[in-house]
Nucleic acid binder design. Structure first.
Length: 251
DNA sequence: GTGAATGTTCATTC
DNA sequence: GGAATGAACATTCA
């Protein structure tokens, strides 16, 4: 699930708890903790107030005391709000409780997890600009300078932070660009515009809408058709990832 | 049993 | 050094 729009949705959930005191830290599965143990996490977070959360690409963080609590959601993570009386889910891994509610970090596959870092800049040192906020000029400069296929470049978090597999396909479909085309052969200014539009719409929904007017809504159909021209969509592997495109719209 | 899955990182090879 | 590929991580599902 989590790409930039999803994480933006999680940021809003977390923002609902900004400036509130963490009453308890419940680590149900320490397997999601990165670089911090359950004991230190509890010691440094419990009793402290959560700062205003920020999002950069697929990273989400909030200041707690002298450190920053950082979430990454991998392929299956989510952050949701629940009443403490509501039954916990099998994949809830860490729970932060507050007066009158709790935040649950749920993640089936545990590919990523929670960190408590003192230096956010160091954590994000190799991460590119956020895809939602990057200027056209910087976008063109960063992608124009590499000799790669456009889809893997868009998904490379050190080039641009926030796009995942589904969004990359969606953006390229809207821009009518074949995912294997080299960056050098792409109208990057136009691609930037399509990316912005796609992201703004998805962020407004809190995720990529599974509507059939989006490529994303058709990608799982065995022989889905292009929402624009009706041509049967092509499936293949680009940059090691399952990729869907319209052979007619995206030459 | 097998393969693949919305992500990241590391190793390997060209 | 850049770029592409494959494996690994852990778990579930078709």
């Amino acid at each position: 699930m989590p790409e930039l729009p999803d994480v933006e949705g999680f940021r809003r959930v977390l923002a609902g708890y900004a400036r509130r005191r963490v009453r308890g830290v419940d680590v149900l599965d320490a397997g999601v903790l990165r670089g911090v143990g359950a004991d230190r996490l509890d010691r440094e977070v419990r009793g402290r107030t959560l700062g205003k959360p920020w999002r950069h690409g697929k990273w989400l963080g909030a200041r707690v005391g002298g450190a920053t609590l950082v979430f990454h959601f991998g392929m299956t993570g989510e952050l949701y709000e629940a009443d403490e009386s509501a039954e916990r889910h099998r994949h809830d891994r860490v729970v932060l409780s507050f007066a009158g509610g709790e935040l649950r970090y749920r993640d089936q596959r545990k590919l990523q997890g929670l960190r408590l870092v003192s230096d956010v800049d160091r954590l994000l040192a190799d991460t590119g600009p956020d895809a939602l906020h990057v200027s056209r000029a910087e976008f063109v400069e960063r992608l124009g300078g590499i000799r790669r296929q456009v889809k893997p470049a868009l998904m490379d978090q050190s080039v641009l932070a926030g796009l995942g597999n589904l969004l990359a396909d969606e953006v390229l479909w809207r821009a009518r660009v074949h995912p294997r085309r080299p960056c050098a052969d792409v109208d990057l200014a136009q691609l930037h515009g399509r990316m912005r539009t796609t992201l703004r719409q998805a962020v407004a929904t809190g995720r990529v809408p599974p509507r059939t007017s989006w490529l994303t809504g058709r990608r799982d159909e065995p022989s889905g058709s292009c929402p624009r021209c009706g041509t049967t969509l092509s499936h293949g592997r680009v940059g090691g990832r399952h990729t869907v495109w319209c052979p007619r719209c995206q030459p």
